[in-house]
């Protein structure tokens, strides 16, 4: 069963085509990576799935439900969670409150204007559990703005998981991380529930090939190739598309330094 299906999905800005008729199916429980050079349209594709950008053609299905015309917050309620390319938290609030914000929405008590936040014990407990699970139990009281880069990413995943998603979108999660932080993050993703489907954009090919069960290659707004990590690595089409650089391995093994921005934004 596919959790996410894209049918001929495309986005153009006037005559500029950012994403051109992409068909993609992401199976339940997959760790599906989306790779491609800067400007390939990865972030645009992500934004369309997440609901920040309206596609100009095609359909997006979550399970069997067509969510193409759903707003961003409606999709979140239907089970699409995400972390942002540039870390995006409630910096002025405590780490715990960052998670509580998501848990209370998911628990359906966010509209309650009368009982205090503290009185909703079950919400705080679930938030606390999530923090423990993601390795931040002693940081609950700290201000989110005071966290290290790696911790911020952990917290972002905790916030995303708090909404009990079916599909988790990770937009370049290890960008800017130290090698240690990066491998800790890989472990964290590996520890996610197996039934949770993860779609990940990443430049760091070590991370991609360690984590991914499927890899799709996007090039100039089109889907170039899809397969297992090994298939994609050996694909002649992919190598050909990258012939501009002398050695195809370069692209896969050494991500360009500072390649954290996707030119297609």
């Amino acid at each position: 069963m596919n959790v996410l299906t894209l049918e001929g999905l495309g986005k153009s800005y006037g005559s500029l085509v950012a994403v051109d008729a992409v068909d993609l199916a992401v199976a339940e429980g997959a760790r599906h990576a989306l790779i491609g050079p800067n400007g390939a349209g990865k972030t645009t594709l992500f934004d369309m799935v997440g609901g920040r950008t309206r596609p100009t053609r095609g359909r997006i299905l979550l399970g069997d439900a067509d969510i193409t015309r759903r707003t961003e917050h409606e999709r979140a309620r239907l089970g699409v969670a995400k972390t942002f390319q540039h870390s995006n938290l409630f910096d002025g609030l405590s780490v715990l409150d960052n998670v509580v914000m998501a848990v209370q929405r998911d628990a359906g008590v966010a509209r309650s204007p009368w009982r205090s936040v503290g009185a909703h014990r079950e919400v705080r407990e679930r938030a606390g559990e999530l923090l423990s699970r993601l390795g931040l139990p002693d940081r609950a009281g700290a201000s989110a703005g005071a966290l290290s880069h790696g911790e911020r990413r952990q917290l972002e995943v905790a916030v995303a998981l708090a909404t009990r998603p079916r599909l988790l979108l990770l937009d370049e999660p290890v960008a800017g991380m130290s090698p240690a932080e990066s491998s800790a993050f890989v472990e964290l993703v590996r520890g996610l529930p197996p039934e949770l489907t993860v779609l990940i954009i990443e430049h760091d090919m070590d991370v991609v090939f360690t984590l991914a069960t499927r890899v799709s290659v996007l090039h100039a707004g089109r889907l170039l190739e899809e397969g297992t990590p090994a298939e994609v690595r050996d694909s002649a089409t992919v190598q050909e598309a990258y012939l501009g650089t002398q050695d195809a391995d370069d692209i896969f093994l050494t991500p360009e330094p500072g390649a954290t921005r996707d030119g297609a934004r």
């Binding site: 979140a76 969670a81 409630f90 609030l93 914000m101 209370q104 509209r111 204007p113 936040v117």
Partner: peptide, 23 residues
């Protein structure tokens, strides 16, 4: 001091994030 009040602070702090978690 209610969950609703916390949600309002969330909107002040980061509207995009609020939408992303389903508000």
């Amino acid at each position: 001091s209610s969950p609703f009040g916390l949600a309002l602070v969330g909107i002040r702090e980061n509207e995009a994030r609020m939408r992303a978690v389903g508000y």
